[in-house]
Simulated scan of single mutants.
Amino acid sequence: MTTLKDIAHDAKVSVSTVSRVLNGDQTLAVSHTTRQNILDIAKKLNYTPVRARKADQAEEKSPSESPVIGVVVAQSIDEELNDPFFSSIRKGIEKEYAKQGLSTLHTFRLRSMDKGTMLKEIDGLIVIGRISPDTVEKMTNRMEHIVFINHYADEDLYDCVHVDFVRAADRAIRHLQSLGYTHLGYIGGKEREHYFEGNAVIEDERQTTFMKRMQETGALHMEDIHIGEYSMQEGYTLMQQAIKKGKLPQAFFIGSDSMAIGAMRALHEAGLHV
Rank of each mutant, 00 (worst) to 15 (best):
R167D: 13
I131P: 00
G271A: 09
N150H: 10
I126L: 05
M222H: 12
M143F: 02
N23L: 00
T104R: 02
T107E: 00
V163C: 01
D170C: 05
A74S: 11
D134E: 06
T27R: 09
F252I: 12
A29N: 14
F86C: 00
Q241G: 15
M239T: 15
R51N: 14
K12E: 13
V50A: 12
V50M: 12
T140H: 07
L184S: 03
I227F: 12
K44E: 15
V136T: 08
E121D: 06
H145F: 02
Y158M: 09
D6W: 09
A58V: 05
E193Q: 12
T209E: 01
S62N: 06
V274P: 00
V30H: 06
M239A: 15
T208I: 04
K43D: 04
T17V: 14
T107C: 08
Y152W: 04
R192G: 11
Q36T: 13
D83T: 05
A11M: 06
G262S: 10
K99M: 10
R192C: 04
D114R: 11
K247R: 13
D78S: 11
R35S: 10
R53L: 01
R111L: 08
L176V: 02
Y186S: 07
D123R: 02
F86K: 02
M143R: 06
R167E: 12
F148Q: 03
I69V: 08
Y230A: 01
T237E: 06
A11Y: 03
I146M: 02
F165V: 10
L125E: 01
L220D: 08
G255M: 01
L184I: 13
P249L: 03
G246D: 08
S31R: 04
S103P: 00
S256M: 05
R53F: 00
Q75N: 13
D257A: 09
E65V: 06
T2R: 11
M118H: 13
G246E: 03
L102V: 10
P133D: 15
I41A: 14
K247P: 05
D170R: 04
H183G: 12
Y181W: 09
I146V: 09
F196D: 12
A260Y: 00
E65W: 04
A169Q: 03
G70F: 00
T2E: 05
Y158W: 14
V21R: 07
E197M: 10
S88Y: 03
N199Y: 11
M232E: 09
R111V: 15
V72T: 10
F86L: 01
V201L: 08
T107W: 01
I41E: 12
K245H: 15
L105H: 02
A74T: 02
R206P: 04
T217R: 08
I41T: 05
F253P: 03
V50S: 13
R35Q: 13
L102P: 00
P63Q: 14
Q241R: 14
I225F: 04
P63A: 15
V18C: 00
Q215M: 07
P84V: 10
G70K: 07
L184W: 08
S256C: 12
I38G: 04
T117Y: 08
T3Y: 01
A260V: 12
